[in-house]
Amino acid sequence: MIVTGATLFGLVAAGLIGVGLYGLIVNPQPLRKILAFNVIGSGVFLLFGVVARRGAALGLGGDPVPQALLITGIVVAFSATALAVTVLLRLFEETGSTTLASDAPAVASEPVVDAGTGTAALPTRGG
């Protein structure tokens, strides 16, 4: 029973990691990327849980080492989420937009003009 229950959760974890990665890559909203990061994270944590459960022995319901790592991991992931959300909100306050798509380099506010040929360089602003 340990093995079947744990395996089911393991497969769910595999699914969550895939789904979360897709959201992280495809969804253009940063907040949704942060959510997706949390989905991936919990998938990885579930995998930890599965590994711990499979290591049950001597009356312990699970291997305490991965369980302890898991607790540390959850705390770290929470800290990351909090920091990311705060940066995002501050970005919104400062610029009124939240997009991560524009990769306008931070200091290149002036047009790049090639003095040698007098032509403007290719626009490099990604969409």
Binding site: G5, F9, G49, G61, G62, L70, I71, I74, V75
Partner: peptide, 11 residues
């Protein structure tokens, strides 16, 4: 269900 009660509390 995975017998990680400590983890459950954290979660």
């Amino acid at each position: 269900q995975l017998h990680g009660v400590d983890v459950a509390l954290t979660e």
